[in-house]
């Protein structure tokens, strides 16, 4: 085998592999655009002003309304944040400010990383077992518990990383001025890392916005407008689930419109988070 044919073979492999890898990237980008394009196309076609002013209609009518689902989702997200953000923030603070690189802290980080990718349907099962079954009925509260459990690992991780990045000079200056530890952490360190921490919260919010599986056995759905936390509550993902599988034209259009709004919401959140973060690493 001459040198030239070996060289040629290597060239061919190199060029072929470059083409294949470019093709692989094209495949990924193609599917992205296909999904976003159809969501945009069908979503815009299903948009009506009444989506925001009327509630979900019963089958067999031609009405368009998603008001109860929007409000319900906002309430679920708000309540999950109320439960998840403090726990996530404080746990991340412990990791960064008290635990450092100790064995316990690394164990907590390890477990947290596993929880980051835990199947959301299992968390829904867990919320059913500890909230729905004892309470005796489905509730928005149970749904928020499930969503909060999904949100916490993300906030723990970003808080931990962002707080670790804060330089020690600010902290030591505060200590030198006589501030107690908790003041140092809350008024100096948290403040310094607030952009990063906020980013983590936004990313957590983006993650739980479209989650359906945890709500399947917890918040269920509600065809009426309700703000009762201890009863089933309408929400966007479950409405999409119910309407998409139906044979009614107006329901299917509403499913697309809701999907479009959910995707737009998540994209806006991600963009805002990205602009806060700049070049810093973001956990998935």
């Amino acid at each position: 085998m001459s040198v030239y044919s070996v060289h040629a073979k290597r060239r061919v492999i190199d060029v072929a592999s470059k083409i294949l890898m470019g093709a692989a990237t094209l495949v990924g980008v193609f599917f992205l655009f296909w999904i976003l394009w159809t969501t945009l196309k069908f979503g815009l076609a299903g948009m009506h002003w009444s989506l925001f002013t009327q509630d979900t209609p019963p089958p067999g009518t031609d009405a368009f309304g998603l008001r109860n689902a929007f409000v319900g989702s906002l309430i679920l997200l708000g309540l999950s944040m109320l439960m998840g953000v403090p726990i996530g923030l404080m746990a991340g603070t412990w990791l960064a400010e008290y635990g450092f690189r100790s064995r316990t802290a690394n164990l907590v980080r390890f477990i947290n990383d596993i929880m980051l990718s835990a199947p959301s349907i299992e968390i829904g099962l867990f919320a059913y077992a500890i909230v729905v079954a004892p309470m005796g009925h489905f509730s928005a509260f149970a749904g928020s518990v499930a969503l909060a459990i999904l949100m916490i690992p993300i906030i723990v991780r970003t808080t931990d990383e962002m707080l670790s990045l804060v330089g020690s000079d600010m902290r030591e200056a505060a200590v030198a001025l006589g501030a107690p530890a908790w003041v140092v952490i809350t008024k100096v360190t948290w403040k310094a890392a607030r952009a990063g921490i906020l980013t983590g919260i936004l990313i957590g919010l983006a993650r739980i916005t479209g989650e359906t599986a945890p709500l399947l056995f917890t918040a269920l759905n509600n065809q009426f407008f309700s703000t009762n936390l201890f009863r089933p509550m309408a929400n966007i993902p479950m409405v999409i689930f119910e309407f998409a599988l139906s044979p009614y034209a107006n329901w299917q259009q509403m499913a697309w419109a809701a999907a479009f709004i959910a995707v737009a919401f998540v994209l806006v959140l991600s963009l805002v988070a990205r602009s806060f973060l700049g070049k810093v690493q973001v956990p998935k």
Partner: peptide, 29 residues
């Protein structure tokens, strides 16, 4: 005040980590 804050963070970290075990235990049960 420091003590309370510290304990609050420990509790939160414990909750975050213990959830995993709680899930497995509840589902097994």
């Amino acid at each position: 005040a420091d003590f309370l804050f510290h304990k609050a963070t420990v509790f939160a970290a414990f909750l975050a980590a213990a959830t995993l075990f709680a899930i497995v235990i509840a589902i097994t049960y």
